[in-house]
Design a protein around this nucleic acid. Structure first.
Lengths: 110, 110
DNA sequence: TGTCGTACTACGTCTGTCGTGGTAACTATA
DNA sequence: TATAGTTACCACGACAGACGTAGTACGACA
């Protein structure tokens, strides 16, 4: 099974992550598993890529974090929630995707 | 008319350029005009991006350059020709594109 | 004379991704 | 009891493609 090089997907991690936050907050490990499952193992996001995307998007105001400190075994977990600005950004990126797709496909033979 | 940010298209300049070399050699200025025309002004490649892609792809053996020194006015023009390795790379990238597209569209709402 | 088009090149910066490695607690298996 | 695996991250630095800025040089046209 071929795997997508992450260089290709660059710039699209943001919308993939935001999509998974549209309906409810989530956290890194869960999101990474969902990406893997939803893509049928075709795309496995690198941990560092994921967590640096969180940092960047929080700085840009697209997501907000909050910590659950009451997990079993005294563990912590950092959740992320999409903001209204994040929803707008997601929408804009989706529209850009449609355009991009149309353009690229003009340069695909056959 | 919205314009595609080149960050989005990152990683795809290679196949766009190679597509335009599939049938005959060409050169920078011409390719840049073709991209603009074919995309209906939706994607205008930056000159530096284009020429650095040439350098990189020649280093990787995907294209070969040759210079036409006999232009009117004593001008020179550097042409690029796709190599067999370049054709293979183009094919592989096209297949990767299909996969990538399918994956990304799972994360596009609506 | 100056702008536009043609046809590049050099140099440095930015940013998203990636590689490596580390922490720490629980859980299943041998 | 040991150890491997899963969960759940974080820090640090490197890389590479894209980009911004600037410059060269010639011809055509107004």
């Amino acid at each position: 099974m071929a795997e997508i090089s992450s260089d290709v997907i660059r710039g699209y991690n943001d919308i993939i992550i935001l999509f998974l936050l549209l309906n409810s907050p989530s956290y890194g490990y869960e999101i990474s598993k969902q990406i893997r499952t939803m893509s049928e193992d075709k795309y496995i996001i690198k941990e560092t890529t994921l967590y640096s995307a969180f940092t960047r998007m929080e700085k840009n105001g697209f997501i907000e974090s909050f910590v659950d400190e009451d997990l079993a075994g005294g563990k912590k977990r950092t959740y992320y929630r999409i903001t209204p600005a994040g929803r707008e950004y997601y929408q804009a990126k989706c529209e850009e995707w449609t355009l991009t797709k149309e353009v690229i496909e003009k340069f695909i033979a056959g």
